[in-house]
Design a protein around this nucleic acid. Structure first.
Lengths: 165, 165
DNA sequence: TTATACTTTCAAAAAATTTTGAAAATTAAT
DNA sequence: ATTAATTTTCAAAATTTTTTGAAAGTATAA
């Protein structure tokens, strides 16, 4: 396979993976493109390589910066902004965990807590609370484990992987 | 909060969580409804409680059965099919991991493997291969860890959680 | 066999999400 | 202060995903 074809295939695969996980396909593709670029790229480079509009490029670059997966790189004497991506896979995963945990796991924990406070105490209420309690137990364990995960270093992660395997 | 309101809130939250993670909102809601139902429900019950069409109900029930999260329950003398959900949270998560790993992680591993086989050996090729290799290392570790996870029992999982925390 | 109860399918409609592109805003140089 | 380069915004268009509902399919009972 030619290098350019391989790059294309990787970008497509990363885009599909992203969109299956609720991450905008283009956002994932921009990330993939930057991951395999030796050089920092500017908005026009990204527009051209992915064949997307300026608005689309801009929005997704901002989102990636927001997620801590992409950084601006200012070249001396150059006006336009260039972008590079976080290359360390562990940091990439860590940032994704931080971002999604806050956006999704935490609201669910709040709802579980809210709905635990119900009126009455018949068998229906008991049964409902039992289910909610189990989910709560599981979710808060996951929450704490992810906290530990993101605050740990790559080395710790590797050791954990090893222990698990 | 009234029990019915609490149930509604839980169903909505579960639906939102699902749709943020690439799982059809209605599929997640059907799952939530069955999770908190003491009794098995039939298609009409689900249609009525979630206010969805027959086709939608049917499709999402099938998908949940496919994912191993919901089971048919046949009542003697009754013609229609009733459904119950897997109530053990660890089994729920295990089934989701199995399903999504096969559908998403494995294809990515295949692509990573394919694109590793490129022509030429200049510095561009080397740089590309370095990135791919790191992702591959990470992805295959995740793959193996998930395999271990799904083949382990709830008890083992708890111990692992504890160790991590 | 025929009728009845229920399930499945799928094309079309609706809804949600993503993308475009041109205008507005910003920033820096002259 | 004016111009030029670049970035940002956002309403409209395009695309994708989900939902509907009626028709077709299937199984059971009479």
């Amino acid at each position: 396979m030619e290098l350019d074809e391989a790059k294309q295939r990787f970008i497509q695969a990363w885009g599909t993976l992203g969109s299956n996980w609720g991450i905008n396909r283009t956002m994932a593709q921009v990330h993939a493109l930057l991951l395999i670029s030796a050089e920092a790229l500017c908005a026009d480079d990204i527009m051209e390589k992915l064949k997307i509009s300026r608005g689309n490029a801009n929005m997704n670059i901002r989102a990636l910066i927001d997620w801590g997966l992409v950084f601006k790189e200012l070249k001396p004497g150059e006006r336009r902004e260039y972008f590079i991506s976080e290359k360390d896979m562990w940091n990439v995963v860590r940032q994704i965990i931080i971002h999604r945990k806050k956006k999704e796991l935490e609201p669910v924990l709040r709802v579980l807590n809210d709905v635990s406070d119900i009126e009455g105490d018949g068998p229906d209420q008991e049964a409902f609370l039992d289910v909610i309690k189990e989910i709560q137990l599981f979710a808060s364990k996951a929450d704490k484990t992810l906290d530990k995960l993101v605050s740990s270093d790559a080395n710790w992660l590797m050791k954990t992987f090893m222990k698990m395997m």
